[in-house]
Design a protein around this nucleic acid. Structure first.
Length: 492
RNA sequence: CGGGAGGUAGUUCAGCCCGGUAGAAUACUUGGUUUGGGACCAAGGGGUCGCAGGUUCGAAUCCUGUCCUCCCGACCA
């Protein structure tokens, strides 16, 4: 079974690629580093997007859309932000092609059509948005501004990987403006909670909420909060970030407001985002050697019904019964498909839907009709049971919930078992090399030490967990005093 | 961007070293038998050999350039 898939043990990277490609989530294109998200993968993204969008709106945000291009002069206004992204920008320099006189039928860039000012294809939108906000904000009555946009961005990464790091990707970016520092910090933390809620309760992917060290911070932020997830190969994945931007962008773009005392103040800012990278995390958090395992709440298809028949007459009998069940399932809001195609035999369908991670498979043949039962197969545990057809829709509904919970608990158990304290350097390195996962260790708080540890072990500080327990100790590398442990890991 | 590997039928690949009518498996189409874990038989269709130059009587094969992918590294909100 699953004979064409590479196993995780044999080659984890290849297994990951196999699942994306053969599970039909995405495919390569002729464009370097850019993928096409196929209908099945896009359906997954749509489900994720819809849930997040509702969460944003429930927390008072509205959607808008800003330009893809950022004039270079605006892009460079916030210096740290510009510096952070400068090395991975796509730049528009011309606006016209013309026939190439030396190569008939071919086109060339028209040198006459050079732009006065280059346009940067947005790697993130703070610059264009804050330049726009300048015109929208005059008074404290204009605040807060709570805006989100669903968009694509481009980052010219040297090395790309499907979903995890592509040159162009889809995401949402929230950009809010506030009258006070306190309010902006509350917003930053609120959105981190939204992300954690989404990751854990919808994607069934446990995350650690924390704050980044100064060197891992978003370029232009005063603080970067993050959710960190753990993949099955023991590597960490930054799954979402929420930034407290202070007044950095307000100052760079001169965005001031009059407060109640008619004093001019700079606006306080936040930005926060999650991307299609979440899909990569979803794949690596849950799936197995037989294919994808998708959490029911966001799976494009939650239930597939596969008929087992030897003749049209038998298929007719089965179809009659399925026609009773389908409306009941749909009535309960379940995304269900009846695969009565005769192009593939049952065994092939079983394997295909397992590869694509459909949470529940129902198989029904005439034998089952006689016994008034149906075979229920769970993707997460690969167990099969024969269940009475009476009230089957409620059984399926409950089972979907159970699968969702089981997937989360299983991932959480793995994650929890892979947060390991290290009290000396030998332990630290041993855990990273052999056990993998997060290592909880003391750090002296300096960027130099952080960098040195990264050089020596390739592990980075993923975050300083929120509500971190305070505990006096000694830095794992330097032995200097430390007040708390931080989480290290090798990461994607 | 450095090192390594690769790109030939929808897919996985052989052929390349040593230039001479483009192959296999699988998938697809049709017919038949089948159908409770990736069925079988028969017939059939499908290719600018990544792209662009060059060498040659002749290039999938040799040479040069270029694009895309994978792995390792550097980089990485």
């Amino acid at each position: 079974m699953a004979k064409e898939l590479t196993s995780r043990a044999a080659d984890y990277s290849q297994w990951y690629n196999d699942l994306i490609l053969k599970g039909q989530l995405a495919d390569y294109t002729a464009v370097r580093g850019c993928m096409v998200i196929k209908p099945y993968g896009y359906a997954l993204w749509e489900n994720m997007r819809d849930v997040l969008d509702k969460m944003f709106k429930d927390t008072g945000h509205v959607n808008a859309y800003f330009p893809l291009f950022v004039p270079k002069s605006l892009f460079e206004a916030e210096e740290k932000n510009a510096e952070g992204f400068a090395k991975e920008c796509a730049i528009v320099t011309h606006y016209r092609l013309k026939n190439d006189p030396s190569k008939p039928g071919k086109l060339m860039v028209d040198p006459e059509a050079k732009l006065e000012e280059e346009l940067i294809v947005r790697p993130t939108s703070e610059a264009i948005i804050w330049n726009t906000y300048k015109g929208w904000i005059q008074s404290y009555r204009d605040l807060p501004l709570l805006i989100n946009q669903w968009a694509n961005v481009v980052r010219w990464e040297m090395r790309t990987r499907l979903f995890l790091r592509t040159a162009e990707f889809l995401w949402q970016e929230g950009h809010t403006a506030h009258a006070t520092k306190e309010e902006a910090i509350i917003e930053t933390k609120k959105m981190l909670e939204v992300y954690a809620d989404f990751a854990e309760n919808w994607m069934a992917m446990p995350v650690i909420k924390g704050v980044k060290t100064a060197s891992e911070r978003f370029a232009g932020a005063d603080d970067t909060y993050c959710i960190e997830a753990l993949m099955q190969d023991g590597k960490a994945l930054q799954a979402g970030t929420s930034h407290f931007l202070g007044q950095n962008f307000a100052k760079a773009f001169d965005v001031k407001f009059s407060d109640k005392e008619n004093k001019l103040e700079y606006v306080w800012a936040t930005s926060w985002g999650v991307s299609t990278r979440l899909i990569g995390g979803l794949v690596m958090a849950h799936s197995d050697d037989d294919g994808l395992i998708l959490p029911p709440k966001i799976a494009p298809l939650q239930v597939v019904i596969v008929p087992i028949f030897k003749s049209d007459e038998e298929l007719g009998m089965i179809t009659n019964k399925v026609n009773e069940i389908m409306p009941e399932l749909k009535e309960l809001g379940i995304r269900v498909k009846f695969d009565n195609s005769d192009a593939a035999r049952p065994g092939w369908k079983f394997a295909q839907y397992e590869l694509q991670g459909v949470p529940i498979r129902l198989a029904i043949g005439v034998r089952d009709l006689g016994n008034n039962v149906i075979e229920v197969a769970r993707r997460d545990t690969k167990t099969k049971t024969s269940v009475t057809l009476d009230g089957i829709s409620f059984y399926v509904k409950a089972l979907l919930e159970e699968i969702q919970l089981h997937m989360f608990n299983r991932a959480k158990q793995y994650r929890d078992e892979h947060i390991t304290p290290a009290n000396n350097w030998e332990e630290f390195v041993d855990i990273l090399d052999n056990k993998t996962g997060f290592v909880s260790a003391h750090w002296d708080g300096t960027a130099e030490t952080e960098e040195k540890i990264k050089e020596l072990t390739k592990a980075t500080i993923r975050c300083i967990p929120l509500n971190n327990e305070q505990e006096n100790g000694k830095c794992i590398l330097t032995g200097n005093p430390s007040k708390e442990r931080v989480l290290f890991a090798r990461a994607y």
